[in-house]
């Protein structure tokens, strides 16, 4: 399937003469600090490539200053990229004129912000309907659609409240509803739950997973929280100093970290929750009994513990009838004990 979003060699440099900087291969090769020292410019995003598939939940993860928020703003041109291409449904949005860009923003993508960005002088319903209002949707239709998404995000009964009368979690539901109201193809989330307390955050994460299942939209989700990334992401892009370090599924990051930075990052992740059998299986040895139970290579270790420890023979890892390897007590205990 063709990707919805395809980013190639994307650069964002803040500072004087930014466009000349990215034209120079010599300067592009410098590290962030060297570039800062030599030119006084800050390269927030440096040569980023990635694709997002339709319906995918794509997570960009990085610590503060890694350039992730700038990256997501580049995707909607809230921040103007310095160089590169961003193909959105086959159209390079860097070439869109202001009018086309507004059309895209009105119809194709929308964004949820860390600090909500609600309008304090409008009720919940009017906040949710704001995007429709600026498109020129008539009042009655606006009210109808707003009500739909308000119900969808679980805000029913709060339509007439003002944002300052709601808790943080509820306010972010308003932000979510506002983003959904225009029925966009892609939703961008800029650390939407970082400002919320842990319990509410967990609720909201489940809410996003539910919505992703129900509305099936493509989502690009920015976070600094690895467990959030692992929980939500179909695939995760790890950023450091403006560069992509690794792109992959959660178990790929944990099972095969691209470098020490990622390894260090995922060290404390409970591996049994993330790794699947394919990461821990070993080739069968001559002395193995091969008539034990069978499991799929995509089974998460945690769910395989009981079967493997319960069986007196090694468990066979099988895909489409083909024996890929075996997992015995030793491998399972290696993962579970390694977490302690």
């Amino acid at each position: 399937m063709d990707p919805v979003i395809s980013v190639r060699d994307l650069w964002k440099v803040f500072g004087p003469n930014a466009s000349q900087l990215v034209a120079s291969d010599e300067l592009k090769a410098l590290s962030r600090q060297e570039l800062m020292d030599r030119t006084g410019s800050v390269a927030a995003v440096r040569g980023v490539d990635f694709d997002v598939a339709p319906g995918e939940m794509f997570v960009v993860m990085g610590l503060s200053g890694s350039g992730k928020s700038t990256l997501v703003r580049c995707l909607t041109r809230l921040v103007e990229p310095t160089a590169g291409t961003i193909m959105f449904e086959g159209e390079n949005i860097l070439e869109a004129d202001p009018k086309r860009l507004r059309d895209l923003r009105r119809n194709k993508f929308s964004m949820v912000f860390q600090h909500f960005g609600l309008l304090p002088h409008r009720t919940v319903a009017d906040n949710v309907g704001y995007g429709l209002e600026i498109r020129g949707v008539p009042r009655a239709k606006r009210a109808e659609r707003s009500q739909e998404v308000i119900d969808l995000v679980g805000l029913s009964g709060n339509e007439k409240s003002y944002p300052d009368q709601l808790s943080g979690g509820m306010q972010q539901r308003v932000g979510l509803a506002r983003a959904l109201a225009g029925d966009p193809d892609v939703l961008f989330f800029d650390e939407p739950f970082s400002a919320l307390d842990p319990l509410i955050r967990r609720d909201m994460q489940s809410e996003v997973i539910r919505l992703h299942r129900e509305v099936g939209k493509t989502m690009v989700f920015i976070t600094h929280d690895l467990s959030e990334a692992l929980k939500l992401g179909d695939r995760i892009l790890i950023m450091r100093d403006g560069k992509v370090v690794q792109v992959g599924t959660g178990d790929e990051l944990v099972g095969a970290p691209a470098d020490d930075y990622v390894r260090d990052f995922v060290r404390d992740v409970p591996k049994s929750h993330v790794l699947t059998l394919k990461w821990i299986m070993r080739p069968p040895r001559p002395d193995d009994d091969l008539d034990g139970p069978e499991l799929s290579p995509e089974t998460v270790v945690r769910e395989a513990v009981r079967s493997v420890l319960g069986a007196d023979k090694p468990v066979k890892v099988v895909r489409d009838g083909e024996l890929l390897g075996v997992v015995a007590d030793e491998e399972i205990l290696g993962v579970v004990a390694g977490e302690a």
Partner: peptide, 12 residues
């Protein structure tokens, strides 16, 4: 953020 939110929704 409020201004950004408005811009991201395509407001002039």
């Amino acid at each position: 953020t409020t201004v950004e939110a408005s811009e991201s929704l395509g407001a002039t």
